[in-house]
Amino acid sequence: MSNRIEIFLTLSAELTAFSRFDLLGTGLAEAYLGTLDRVVGDDITDTLLAAFVALPPPEDSTRSQALRATILGNELLGDVARSLTKLWYSGTWFELSYAWTQRFGPKPADATFVVSPDAYVEGLLWKAIGAHPAGAKAPGYGSWAYPPKIPAFPGSSTAKSEAISVHLQNAGIMS
């Protein structure tokens, strides 16, 4: 399959709601595609990418339903896509379900593991909630006294985070 990394990035962006730009910014796209190849094998990875390419175009209203039917709800691909989503969010590959292994055979590299120390640090989860990974990317002294800056994204209900009022007088940081 040509241009695998591009398809992989587009698939990942759709699963995570983070932009291709954000995903490349982690510096881990190749490592994660490589993880997928190593754990479930190139053939299953290619099947996943092919199923994604075959979806109706983004502007088509049936695309989301098709993604659920042919990827997330597919017996072979569903658990793999979910593990990929969790990988992007946390930097950890989570072992596939017992049922998947029973049905499709055990994969020797399929265990729960952190892909690399920087994979933990680059987990998207922290960015999603306007926080930082525990033990890294510290926001600075006293930053915790202020409301979180939760990034907006297409489809987010940004009203919530914007509605937060600031109570500097209670923070003690202004004294």
């Binding site: 759709e14 699963l15 995570t16 709601a17 983070f18 993604l67 659920r68 997330l72 896509a81 979910r82 989503t85 969790k86 969010y89 989860l125 999603a128 909630i129 306007g130 926080a131 979180p148 939760i150 994204f153 297409p154 489809g155 987010s156 209900s157 919530k160 985070s161």
Partner: peptide
């Protein structure tokens, strides 16, 4: 991801609502 079957924007918003 595994039990509520969320992905994309629903997942990202769900994490905000649940964790923050």
């Amino acid at each position: 991801v595994d039990d509520r079957n969320l992905y994309g924007a629903d997942l990202r918003q769900g994490l905000i609502d649940r964790i923050s």
